[in-house]
Design a binder for these strands. Structure first.
Length: 974
DNA sequence: CTGAGATCTCTTTTT
DNA sequence: GAGATCTCAG
């Protein structure tokens, strides 16, 4: 069997991947950059382990970090493995796997098998209450973060005084959870570690452990991984430190070291050679960008909105690009509102991933809380939340005092209420007669009834989860309640509830879709079989806080709107990142700029062919300040903002088609299809001059902003469902355009012709249609690939290497021509540009060019004499969008540069869309027009991924007992 | 004390 | 643009 399977298995793998998949080393570390086929490699390895090595699927454990990744992994393994065998694999997020072990074996460590999961809002609520009660000055969110860190990491280093208050809070919190029989997310991991330490037999069957996105592991997860694998110590990890974006969740890149240290003889494999496809993407994208650049000279239009771009892209590609090829990635989920409403108005179908939490909706939470109480009446928090929903005449004050009373008496709220209604309570808190009746009759009775029914159901009385929920809704008069509370808005709320019921039904139909299957039986180890569907359902809700909507919408192509975090591991032909402004990315509340930078990097590398970054000019709410472009792209944008949005001209689309390996329909077919709409050019936005005419010259940012706001409301009420393309884009007078544009609060627009494009790996040798996807030799190294090692070096030798490597970049100002973007080491990137490579040392020292090329912003820093002083910088910013295009096309002729300077100058007053172009380097201009002082260097703190790329490559310093390719450890695969 | 209406405040990312 | 919090009438 092996032979046949292997053939097909390896046919889709390149050499490095093959090596990774079929490695016989007990521990394998696969280090790879974006787009190098990590997931594919990992899934293939699972297949190999099962089909070739011969492990039972149930003896293989695969852990991921996000639900989506788990789902995808399962699907892909399922496809590759066949026969539904993937269901036997212990696969899921760390949390979900931990939960399964705890549910099955947790009793051994004194866990009540009916434990519930305290989700984020539960924890927050509990901690907030504790903080209030303790009357400490500590900030609940801070306390929460501290506690979580402490659990996830084991230690927290901070001032002892701080720790003390936090510690008290921590202990109270823990007690509270225990009383309510809850585990929070961190507890799932911590307790599972405890379990597996004390009872290794629970995982004695596990032959091999595989970890996806290893760079996201935190301390506990690392322990857990080791414990999962304790029987055989066979582990495969896959990761890319540059995509480490979960530092806030205590992910520690350091775990890579630990891994290499703890597992001597780890085989390390870089998936460099597989960068082929991406590399050709780079190459081709280059040309795409060029096409766009050539358009810049036409003075027709500028700016644009992604929703329009989407339509245009679709039209101009004759349907080659469809909605589902497009993703809009956001730093924060809240931003999706704007995007969603804009998409909605344009009639573009979309789906939202991440951030948007169905189960967090109030109406759903109420139902869930009832279910949780039915499952476990002692859940005080849940009970307290719904005790007065629907209104029963109990107010906050009473609830609070009841809760305190319960706490004092070491009992639960539920028990207290039951007692009270039976009349054996020495009332400390008075409850009114009327209220008492309601509680007794409507709440306690209702819940008790359902509990009894549910208990009977367990004995096979044919009462399932859906019926339970429906009964609950009926008994509660929930629809009426919603109507009373939400008025005309109630319909959507009620439909959410109905959707929830449908989800429950789906869950019942096929629990394995949403939730894992039972853990494998282990001879001689006794298990508690999870029989309670309700428990599983609730756990699933807590651990997979998003619904799966895919099933119904699969026929229609949908644009994806997603948080960047949730987009990790995915890719799309066309990607928009519409909020690249300071405060969003890096986020205002983030204290780790390097991580924010990686985040942007992750976002950008999701793009296969087309990448657009944009920056709105104003915040959406009451901010008087114009938004500033994210410092991460400052240097890029300074040179690469385009006046206009992208043009999806035929040559461009042809290249896109090549990248995607799709066929672009013939020209006539395309134009036939777009008879009545879609401007070919993106000229939504007025010229600077026109902007002035519309009365938009500087009157101060704040009044502008206000004006904007008015426009916004105005617009919303006035624009019907008419074809937005026509209305706004084309025939409408500018005033309308402005209104329309301002209605979209993420308007500014920075196109980036693919991140890759921003930094060409090579000079385009002969820009010709020959640039096919597979043409490039595999020697091109994916930049990020090395970085894992780069990182490793970093820890040892950081200061030195870094400062040397980054020295030139850190220099804030340089004179034109003196420095140059970091191009390909072997070949100066832009033939026409003068200047020397930034990193001479490396240039001679031989890091691969690609490593440095990959750098996003800083690789491109070049500068020229400042043309304007800071005092010339504009104060006011009219409402026009900015478009930026990251490109890497060759230097423009001098003339062009002059032109550009002029354009930028014009923007000084009127702030039209500004246009940057990487090749028309001009950071100072950007400086000028934005009125921002540029930081001394991009990489002021931490080592951003792209910066790390600049470090010379060194092999890992960790000693290993054998060399690659030499003696391999023998599998004891008896 | 409750409940309705008004006002303030925020807003990361995921399990 | 929703949630938490505050204010005041009953």
């Amino acid at each position: 069997m092996a032979a046949v399977n292997n053939a097909s298995l390896f046919s889709t793998l390149n050499k490095a991947q093959t090596q990774a998949v079929s490695s016989n080393a007990p521990t394998v570390a696969i280090l790879a950059g974006p787009g190098s086929g990590k997931t594919h490699t990992l899934t293939s390895r699972v297949v190999w382990l099962v089909d070739h090595v011969g492990y039972q699927p149930c003896d293989v454990l695969v852990a991921t970090f996000t639900v989506k990744a788990a789902r995808e992994m399962k699907e892909r393994i399922g496809k590759a493995l066949g026969g539904g065998r993937e269901k036997k694999i212990v696969l899921g997020t760390f949390h979900s796997i931990a939960r399964r072990y705890l549910a099955t074996y947790g009793q051994r460590i004194g866990l009540d098998p009916k434990f519930g999961i305290a989700d984020d809002s539960d924890s927050r609520g509990i901690i907030t209450r504790i903080c209030k009660r303790l009357d400490t000055k500590i900030d609940p969110p801070a306390a929460k973060a501290w506690i979580s860190k402490k659990k996830a990491r084991g230690t927290v280093d901070d001032a002892p005084t701080k720790s003390k208050a936090f510690m008290t809070c921590f202990m109270e919190y823990q007690q509270h959870l225990e009383r309510a029989n809850l585990l929070d997310y961190d507890d799932l991991l911590v307790r599972c570690v405890e379990l597996l330490r004390r009872y290794p037999s629970c995982v004695s069957n596990i032959q091999s452990v595989l970890i996806d996105e290893y760079q996201d592991t935190n301390g506990v997860q690392y322990e857990l991984m080791k414990l999962f694998a304790q029987e055989r110590r066979r582990i495969t990890i896959v990761g890319d430190p540059d995509q480490s974006i979960y530092g806030w969740r205590s992910a520690e890149i350091r775990n890579l070291f630990r891994f290499l240290r703890d597992f001597n003889g780890t085989e390390e494999i870089s998936l460099e050679e597989n960068y082929r496809s991406s590399s050709s993407i780079l190459d081709v994208s280059l040309r795409v960008i060029q096409q766009q650049r050539s358009l810049r000279k036409e003075p027709t239009g500028r700016g644009g909105l992604d929703r329009l771009q989407i339509k245009r892209a679709k039209a101009m590609s004759g349907g080659m690009i469809k909605e589902d090829d497009v993703a809009i990635l956001l730093r924060s989920a809240i931003l999706s509102r704007h995007v969603e409403s804009a998409l909605g108005k344009s009639g573009i179908p979309y789906k939202m991933i991440g951030g948007f939490k169905f189960y967090e909706r109030t109406e759903i939470k109420v139902v869930l809380d009832y279910l949780r109480i039915i499952h476990q009446p002692d859940n005080n928090d849940a009970l307290a939340r719904i005790i007065n929903v629907p209104k029963r005449g109990i107010g906050d004050a009473t609830v609070k005092s009841l809760l305190e009373e319960a706490e004092r008496g070491s009992t639960s709220l539920w028990k207290l209420l039951v007692k009270h209604c039976r009349g054996d309570r020495n009332a400390k808190t008075t409850i009114r007669k009327q209220t008492e009746q309601k509680i007794s009759g409507e709440l306690l009775k209702l819940i008790n009834n359902l509990r009894i029914k549910w208990a009977d159901a367990a004995k096979g009385k044919g009462f399932d989860l859906v019926e339970l929920i429906e009964q609950l809704l009926k008994d509660l008069g929930f629809e009426k309640h919603l109507e009373d509370t939400y008025g005309d808005e109630y319909e959507s709320r009620w439909s959410n509830v109905q959707e929830f019921v449908a989800l429950a039904a789906e869950f019942m139909k096929d629990p394995s879709l949403t939730e894992e299957d039972a853990l494998p039986d282990i001879a001689s180890v006794e298990q508690v079989r999870e029989t309670d569907v309700l428990a599983k359902f609730l756990a699933n809700v807590s651990l997979a806080s998003d619904k799966q909507t895919d099933s119904e919408n699969q026929d229609k192509p949908l644009v994806t709107v997603s948080t960047i975090h949730a987009a990790k591991g995915l890719e799309w032909p066309m990607v928009f990142i519409p909020a690249v402004y300071k405060g969003s990315i890096p986020h205002i509340r983030s204290d780790d700029d390097a991580e924010e930078r990686r985040l942007l990097y992750v976002a950008m590398t999701r793009a296969q062919a087309l990448l657009y970054l944009s920056c709105p000019l104003y915040g959406s709410h009451s901010s008087n300040d114009a938004l500033q472009l994210s410092p991460f792209v400052e240097d890029l944008s300074a040179t690469q903002f385009l006046k206009r949005g992208p043009s999806f001209e035929r040559p461009t689309m042809q290249e896109v088609g090549r990248i995607l390996r799709r066929e672009l329909p013939p020209e006539d077919a395309i134009y036939k299809g777009m008879a009545y709409m879609t401007p070919i050019e993106d000229n939504l936005f007025p010229d600077p001059t026109e902007a002035k005419e519309t009365g938009r010259s500087s009157t101060g940012a704040s009044s502008e902003a206000r004006q904007l706001k008015r426009h916004k409301t105005h617009h919303i009420s006035n624009t019907g469902q008419s074809n937005p393309e026509v209305v706004e884009g084309w025939n409408a007078p500018y005033s309308t355009t402005m209104q329309k544009s301002s209605s979209f609060t993420l308007p500014g627009f920075t196109t980036a012709g693919a991140h890759h494009v921003a930094n060409p790996q090579e000079p385009r040798p002969k820009p010709g249609p020959a640039a096919g996807p597979s043409r490039r030799p595999v020697s091109n190294r994916p930049p990020a690939q090395r970085t894992l090692r780069g990182f490793v070096i970093t820890d040892h030798d950081q200061s030195k290497t870094t400062s040397e490597a980054l020295g030139p970049i850190l220099q804030p100002r340089r004179v034109l021509g003196q420095s140059q973007s970091v191009g390909n080491r072997r070949n100066p990137i832009y033939p026409t540009q003068q200047g020397t490579p930034l990193l001479k040392k490396e240039a001679s020292g031989g890091i691969e060019s690609a490593l440095t090329d990959h750098k996003l912003g800083s690789a491109k820093i070049t500068s020229r004499p400042t043309k304007m002083t800071p005092s010339e910088q504009p104060q006011a910013v009219p409402a026009v969008k900015q478009y930026a295009c990251f490109s890497s096309s060759p230097t423009k002729p001098e003339k062009d540069e002059e032109e550009e300077a002029t354009v930028v100058l014009a923007e000084e007053q009127t702030r039209p869309a500004s246009c940057f172009h990487s090749t028309t380097v001009g950071a100072p201009q950007a400086l000028g027009f934005r009125g921002v002082k540029r930081p001394a260097g991009l990489s002021h703190e931490g080592i951003a991924p792209m910066d790390r790329l600049k470090k010379p490559f060194k092999p890992l310093t960790i000693k290993r007992p054998w060399r690659k390719g030499a003696v391999q450890p023998v599998y004891d695969n008896s």
